[in-house]
């Protein structure tokens, strides 16, 4: 399998007054044309990992790694100018809540065409046509009308589909989805996921799916990284999650209620301080 992204020993550090804080502590993984899930609790460093790949960690955060290679580009030495060509065109990201991630004073249409026009030389009319087609591809009815709407005029599920359209329109090879359905109503979560899945699979893209929902990820991804305190504690094939060995993974699985086997009390996760210091598991292929 050709790899789209190789990351070795990635660290994200925030210098603070009382020493530095490491949000991501030396993780290694690679991404092929697959759906890679990253699961972990809040603060485990999963979102930071996503943003570090695009080098969008806010100052004063620092990204270091032994290797960070996307296609033929070395991300570590890439200038900001080169990174801008990579962002959107080669790797894109969908964030949690479309209410905040869409610009409130720009129309849907101008935000989508902007994503396209940044990377391709096209006439406005042509870009508009492509945007309408893209909205159609994410199952939005009456895309012509939606083009002229503002973000506050669309629902959450629709907003997230607009985000997907916007991020996929320049045809990137990698999509990072950072909790793309957490802010949505349960009733539309699956619909949005299916649309995303279909587009990603049809285009043969690599997907990094960041979530705290282990069940969702196991149904939806090919391979799962379980992160804890900035490190990878376990790597699983999605179908073999029940074979997971690490106590943290087992604990996460046990803390989810199961309709078919109801339990009077859910297990609380018992944390072992040794997990924090255990070396990160490599997820390179």
């Amino acid at each position: 399998m050709t790899s789209l992204l190789d990351v070795e020993n990635l660290r994200v550090t925030f210098p603070t007054r009382s020493g530095s804080f490491e949000a991501v502590r030396g993780i290694s993984f690679s991404l092929g044309r697959e759906r890679l899930g990253i699961v972990g609790e809040s603060g485990s460093g999963k979102s930071m990992t996503g943003r570090a790949i695009l080098k969008l960690i806010r100052k004063p955060g620092i990204v270091t790694a032994d290797r960070m290679q996307m296609g033929g580009t070395d991300l570590l030495t890439a200038s900001e100018r080169e990174m801008r060509r990579i962002r959107g065109r080669h790797a894109s990201m969908i964030m949690q809540d479309p209410k905040f991630s869409l610009n409130p004073v720009m129309t849907v249409g101008s935000q989508i065409t902007e994503a396209l026009l940044t990377h391709e030389k096209l006439s406005r009319a042509e870009a508009r046509k492509r945007a309408v087609a893209m909205l159609d591809a994410v199952a939005i009815r009456d895309p012509e009308r939606v083009m002229s709407l503002y973000p506050h005029e669309v629902s959450g599920g629709m907003g997230q589909r607009i985000m997907i359209a916007m991020m996929l329109i320049p045809n990137p090879e990698i999509l990072i989805a950072d909790e793309p359905t957490s802010a949505l109503d349960v009733s539309v979560q699956l619909q949005v996921l299916e649309i995303m899945d279909k587009l990603v699979t049809d285009r043969g893209m690599g997907l990094i799916f960041i979530s705290h929902d282990l069940n969702l990820v196991s149904n939806f991804c090919d391979r799962i990284l379980i992160m804890y305190a900035g490190r990878i504690v376990e790597v699983c094939q999605a179908g073999k999650l029940h074979e997971a060995k690490h106590p943290y993974t087992i604990g996460l699985l046990n803390s989810v209620p199961d309709l078919e086997h109801p339990r009077p009390r859910l297990d609380a996760l018992q944390r072992d301080p040794a997990w924090r210091e255990a070396p990160s598991v490599s997820a390179l292929t």
Binding site: L54, L56, R84, R87, G88, S92, T118, P170
Partner: peptide
């Protein structure tokens, strides 16, 4: 962040 992700 979205705008930056687009490569603007």
């Amino acid at each position: 962040t979205t705008a930056r992700v687009k490569g603007l």
